[in-house]
Design a protein around this nucleic acid. Structure first.
Lengths: 213, 213
DNA sequence: TCCCATTGACTGAACGTTCATTCAACCCGT
DNA sequence: ACGGGTTGAATGAACGTTCAGTCAATGGGA
């Protein structure tokens, strides 16, 4: 055990300033009480200073929550695998394995549940909707780039990269939502079948997974 | 124009009793104000009788909302295509086209948005979670049955029906969530690629879509 | 047939609590 | 002694809920 005893590497690092401390407190309050129970009071309870201080740093609840959404989306986008991969198939598989993980540690599960709760607000809140529209485009573009590379280099067949990206993103979102909102989510099945989709739909007809000619 | 001037066939039919009228009012309040803004006051405003009456018919807000969830899930499950189909491929395609529709009328879009908002509550509410766990199982079983038939009759390859069902359900959920929470959802791409998945993964290697030998 | 006791649907006013927000005052490093 | 970070107390509005009471319909006993 170190300075911090067992906590999220994303959110239990000592905050550099008060605003970051408030973001972390908001996250804790969200995970503890859910979005419906997310009040200024509860956020105030989750960090050492007074709740009045929140109004010194933010215009109000809406302002605070909107910045919190940006804070969350930044961290969400950062986690995507993006190092150099030998070929597009490896890269795409890494993305799928990361987005539909084999065994999801509780901490990441909580983070993803928080994302699902936040996203649902976008159904009735225009500002939230704009954020998630941008976020989806970000991931779709990233996925499409990988697929396009695969097509160009001959790793993949001549598919439409945007269509494939939209499909993968939707499946990933669905898996995430199911995992966050049910007890019996068949995540392993989705991951397995998503891999099978890539092989049967993207890989050239003759190559049975990773064959070099 | 008829008795009812332009409204949801699901929710603007004249309610048979007060409890059903309350369910409809709750739906209207949810769509107007979002789940976060769903209060007893607002529900009361959406139907002609007094808000006190809500407490005569339900134990309280939680009780009312839980019954509303059942009410919504029943209607959600009813809509799945289930008439007799000539073969499993037709049936599965009908399901996909229904679940990821070509042009979604605003009324169904609202209903699906409501479902997305309700589902998100399951991330922090155990009772909601149980309902959605059951609901997912319902759809997964239905899908798996269709796939299993296709495998048995030779329409499909020897895939694992449960895995395929989990994949299709996740993709459908993702498409629904994206459509409800963003402005730029690429629903057409998802539908197209989901069809392509079925063809390249489920159909026998030689048959290029719907060939009878 | 009349009357009244009983019921269930329904109402308006009120309750105590919690909500987001404000503000005068205080602390403390410069 | 100045100014930004910080505080506790206070505010009115909105929340879910309660409750005494009205009203129309029902059903026996006289």
């Amino acid at each position: 055990m170190n300075v911090q005893s067992m906590g999220s590497p994303l959110f239990d690092t000592e905050p550099t300033d008060t605003r970051e401390a408030i973001m972390q407190a908001t996250y804790r309050a969200l995970r503890t009480h859910g979005y419906a129970g997310l009040t200024i009071q509860r956020i105030g309870d989750e960090f050492p200073k007074s709740k009045s201080l929140l109004y010194h740093h933010y215009d109000g609840k809406d302002d605070l929550l909107l910045e919190f959404l940006s804070f969350m989306l930044e961290r969400f986008e950062e986690t995507i695998p993006d190092r150099e991969y030998d070929d597009a198939h490896d890269h795409l598989t890494a993305i799928v394995d990361h987005a539909v993980p084999e065994d999801l540690d509780p901490e990441r599960a909580e983070f993803r549940a928080a994302m699902v709760e936040l996203r649902a607000q976008a159904a009735s809140d225009t500002a939230y909707r704009e954020h998630f529209t941008r976020n989806d485009r970000f991931f779709r573009d990233r996925f499409a780039t990988v697929v396009a590379r695969g097509v160009k280099e001959g790793t993949f067949r001549e598919v439409d990269p945007d269509r494939v990206a939209a499909m993968v993103l939707a499946t990933v979102h669905g898996a995430m939502q199911e995992e966050a909102t049910t007890d019996g989510a068949e995540t392993a099945d989705v991951r397995g079948e998503l891999r099978a989709y890539i092989e049967s739909r993207l890989l050239p007809p003759d190559s049975p997974s990773g064959v070099v000619e």
